[in-house]
Design a binder for these strands. Structure first.
Lengths: 226, 226
DNA sequence: CGGTACGTTGAAAGGTGTCAACGCTTGTGG
DNA sequence: CCACAAGCGTTGACACCTTTCAACGTACCG
């Protein structure tokens, strides 16, 4: 296993300045130990229906959570970027699989130690509930997108979301390929590519490399998002 | 306001025999008081972004939770049937609006009394977390459906779900119209109608009235669900 | 008896998917 | 150092699934 196999095609992502340290609300209270771990590009972090032993927080890199149909169709439920917590389960198994999109470092804490902390401290239990409710809210927004928005609206929404979450200097450095974006937005990679080209032609955005995007007209995008 | 205005077009739904009493896990612990209330067909129960004062459980009837786009496009996130809890929020506002699909009776308990109970009893807090996590799991399944399944697969999934949840004697008595089904599955009402007609033509199901459906071949449906 | 809501079906349009070709970059191996 | 393969992204042509628009029938109700 060569260390350079599956090297990322984009530069590693630096944590943006506004990372909300969601772990702090938990670890701060009860002094839980968080260790670190690194995954190579495309490496599986955990599989669907696998026992949920850990809860994860992205330190650097990016992660996709997804479900598969038997014939290979894939729906990505969320992208996890630096600062994001993922893999948090109330039951004992993971609802979605998770993979590193690029070389990725995560902090992790044991789920059962979290359970113990929640059992001893109601404020921890409440924090866990609120985090899961936040995921639910995002999922419900995404259902609206998947069920009722057209391709341009979906792309506009995606760009604004990425802009908010990982734009540092006004440039978006996407860690994921067109297929990942398509599987997140319920589109094909070709439709994603065409929509992005169209937005570029309209002057709404500019490329410097396929994954380096500069938004030039956020108001137009917001109006397109429906 | 005539009592008969907006009378339901289908007969009221009886609670199925397998209703999981999700409230029991909460009220049983701390003796919360649950009162009852009745809503007429199409009446709003609460609106999007409205303060979440109560948590609800359907006693009889049916409820739709949904979000709207500014131009009127609607995505129904869930149907709530007898026994189901809805309107449970970790934050102080409702994420989705809710309306009665037919004349509906609900049990309700005050959210802040639930909050107090959760603050005093960790097992209540845990129960709330688990309920929200269950909703999240369903939402993630639905994202897969909305993003990656075709019309027949969506309808097959829907029918099997309704069969499980409200079939008593092998007959499904749908409380909702074709438009509701379409807005739940990310389709138009015409596509829903055509898919159902097609399944009838194939002998997979039979009608006795547009909302009375008998599944004649669940295995075929399960295979169609992908 | 007329109006409205609901459901079905047909015909046509359109948005997205499918299939294919091509260019570019990267990594590999001769 | 160059040839080659593989992955990624873009674009074109066409197919097809779903939507749109319309007509019609039925049930219910004022």
């Amino acid at each position: 296993m060569d260390m350079l196999t599956n090297a990322p095609t984009t530069t590693p992502i630096a944590a943006p300045n506004h990372v909300s340290d969601q772990f702090a609300g938990i670890t701060g209270h009860v002094g839980l130990v968080a260790s670190e771990f690194t995954y190579k590009k495309d490496e599986e972090i955990f599989g669907e229906d696998e026992p949920a032993e850990y809860v994860y927080q992205v330190t650097s890199g990016a992660v996709r959570s997804y479900r598969l149909l038997s014939d290979g169709r894939r729906q990505i439920g969320a992208f996890h970027l630096p600062g994001d917590v993922f893999g948090l389960e109330a039951s004992s198994v993971h609802r979605l699989a998770a993979e590193a999109i690029v070389d990725t470092t995560v902090r992790l804490i044991k789920r059962n130690s979290l359970e113990r902390a929640a059992g001893a401290d109601v404020s921890v239990a409440r924090k866990l509930w609120i985090m899961t409710a936040g995921e639910l809210k995002r999922a419900e927004n995404h259902m609206l997108l998947l069920g009722r928005k057209n391709a341009l609206e979906r792309i506009a929404n995606f760009l604004l979301d990425m802009d908010r979450r990982l734009s540092v200097t006004g440039m978006i450095a996407l860690p994921m390929c067109r297929r990942d974006i398509g599987d997140y937005l319920g589109l094909t990679l070709e439709t994603v590519s065409r929509a992005l080209s169209q937005l570029q032609a309209q002057g709404v955005l500019g490329f410097s490399g396929a994954r380096q995007i500069e938004l030039r007209n956020r108001d137009r995008l917001r109006k397109m998002d429906a």
